[in-house]
């Protein structure tokens, strides 16, 4: 089988299971909504707090969503089967990454809508926001796929996931917040596109290599 077909098969499997169960999007999305609600409550719900609240909720929801795919395979014992298939483990990474990116985009879109409603946030600059969301999703997806595989065989793995994920993805959080502000105000974006691109490059280059080393055996 060609590499891209293996990638597509893994992504399709993850997305199909997600579509049938919705066991990542619904819990992670509801959790993200709860985070938004709590942050809005303590910050007074002003528009200037909206970008921070949005990106914190996206990041925290991403922690849950990223762990879900690996958990599902753990529960059903399909992880070992998946590893037995011929071909490069890298394809497994890209398949998972693709599926996680789709889930993250859905989550980000939903949380963005919730943030507009809750914080009365401006809806200007859709182009900037969509591009930022795509770039952020690519990086978060790679980090999430790698770290979820990493903690899959660790006791208290779900507890270690945020410990590793949140500090590592600080650049995405900061870039996302600033780019959201940029989208609303029309100010120049400064170096933030560069930060997102460098973060993406780092995790998309290192992610698959480390993933292969992490999942073996």
């Amino acid at each position: 089988m060609k590499a891209w077909r293996r990638v597509a098969a893994v992504a399709r499997k993850d997305l199909l299971l997600e579509w049938r169960g919705r066991d990542a999007v619904l819990p992670a999305g509801s959790f993200g909504f709860a985070v938004l609600l709590v942050l809005g409550l303590v910050s007074g719900g002003g528009g200037e707090a909206a970008p921070s609240a949005l990106w914190v909720s996206v990041l925290l929801a991403a922690v849950l969503a990223a762990g879900r795919g690996a958990d599902r395979e753990g529960e059903e014992g399909t992880r070992e089967v998946l590893l037995l298939y011929p071909g490069s483990r890298e394809d497994l990474f890209w398949g998972r990454w693709l599926a996680l990116c789709v889930v993250l985009l859905v989550l980000a879109a939903g949380l963005w809508c919730a943030q507009v409603l809750l914080f009365d946030a401006p809806t200007r600059g859709a182009g900037v926001l969509i591009l930022a969301a795509l770039l952020a999703t690519a990086g978060l997806g790679a980090a999430g796929t790698l770290l979820a595989a990493l903690v899959a065989h660790v006791r208290a793995g779900p507890l270690l996931m945020p410990l590793l994920f949140l500090p590592a993805t600080v650049p995405v959080l900061l870039a996302g917040v600033r780019l959201s502000e940029t989208a609303a105000s029309g100010a120049p974006a400064g170096p933030w596109w560069g930060v997102l691109v460098v973060f993406d490059l780092l995790f998309l280059l290192v992610g698959p290599v480390l993933f292969e080393l992490v999942v073996e055996g």
Partner: peptide, 26 residues
């Protein structure tokens, strides 16, 4: 455990400069 911690050590070292510059600019 040895493999996983080596992977985290590699990742952390590469990620920290990106974190640093993003916080500087932020």
């Amino acid at each position: 455990g040895r493999r996983l911690s080596a992977a985290v050590a590699v990742l952390a070292f590469l990620d920290v400069p990106v974190v640093h510059y993003s916080v500087v600019w932020f």
